[in-house]
């Protein structure tokens, strides 16, 4: 890489080296904790890991993770549909339809402010709102629907923002090219704009899903805090088990079996997120094989 000589001498050389050291340091700051956390989980979980954990539900303070895994997947699937749908549409509106008004203000500014405010709420506050309004107020009790709604409210601003950003980065040249060909606007949006923005949108969606899957505080108030409850398909009146509660709740229990289960839950979560990441990469690579960035 650095086979060619560094430009200049003295001060400039010093600055160049300084920058390079700086970039490596920041890389270390990011990679360090990731590796440390991953290693910590793997080292503690793998030695005693048994596949039966995946096929047995939690009983009392030990057992397996089957019900929690299914619960987490259910929660994520609901968020994917609900928050994904609303978030992407909101982002689309902000980027494509909220055109500046004559007075210079954007008609999308209200939506944007609302979205920014929402994303600033601590998740535990949202959880408590869900508890008061949905769990108690609407008598839904701890339930899938309450959890879906609160998790979605939490990640919708995030999805909207990443969708908007991805759409705004689509080169004007593509839009004008489509326009000049006389493509109908909706057609151009689907075939040119959205397709170009897809990697950004998918990445945002995925990170939102990972955030949702990794949340605990708002879930305790809406999905409940019962590790050994069975998974139920009913939308209301049944608490939902989920992995993060096991990580959070079982780590502080006295028995070793409970600790093991907490580490296993952590490991499963990490694997789940990794699978999501890889899946998204594959999807993106398939749709982007003609993108400008990949001209090499």
């Amino acid at each position: 890489m650095s086979s060619h000589a560094l430009p200049g001498t003295g001060r400039r050389r010093f600055v160049t080296i300084g920058f390079r050291v700086g970039t490596y340091l920041s890389l270390l700051m990011i990679m360090g904790p990731v590796v440390w956390l991953l290693a910590g989980i793997v080292v503690r979980a793998v030695p005693h890991f048994s596949w039966s954990v995946l096929t047995h539900p939690t009983t009392g303070e030990s057992g397996g993770l089957e019900n929690a895994i299914i619960g987490t997947l259910l929660l994520m699937a609901g968020v994917l549909v609900l928050a994904g749908g609303i978030g992407i549409l909101a982002g689309l509106h902000l980027a494509e339809y909220a055109k500046p008004r004559k007075n210079g203000k954007e008609s999308g500014s209200l939506l944007r402010i609302a979205s920014d405010v929402l994303s600033g709420f601590p998740s535990i506050v949202l959880g408590y709102v869900g508890y008061v309004a949905l769990v108690l107020g609407l008598h839904w009790n701890f339930s899938l629907l309450a959890a879906w709604i609160i998790l979605s409210v939490m990640v919708i601003p995030y999805i909207a923002k990443s969708t908007e950003t991805a759409l705004r980065q689509v080169p004007t040249a593509y839009r004008e090219g489509a326009e000049a060909l006389g493509m109908p606007p909706g057609y151009a949006l689907r075939k040119v704009t959205l397709k170009t923005a897809a990697p950004g949108i998918v990445t945002g969606l995925l990170l939102a899903l990972a955030i949702a899957g990794g949340e605990t505080a708002p879930l305790i108030y809406t999905a409940g805090a019962f590790a050994d409850s069975p998974v139920s398909m009913s939308l209301t009146h049944h608490p939902v088990p989920y992995l993060t509660f096991l990580v959070y709740g079982f780590y502080t229990l006295p028995e070793n079996a409970s600790h093991y289960l907490a580490y296993d839950a952590g490991l499963v979560l990490v694997v789940l997120v990794l699978v999501l990441l890889v899946a998204a990469r594959l999807v993106v690579n398939r749709t982007q094989k003609h993108s400008e960035a990949r001209r090499g």
Partner: peptide, 11 residues
């Protein structure tokens, strides 16, 4: 219309 910079679509 043909533009100043070539603008093929990403397809």
């Amino acid at each position: 219309m043909l533009f100043q910079r070539p603008n093929p679509f990403p397809m």
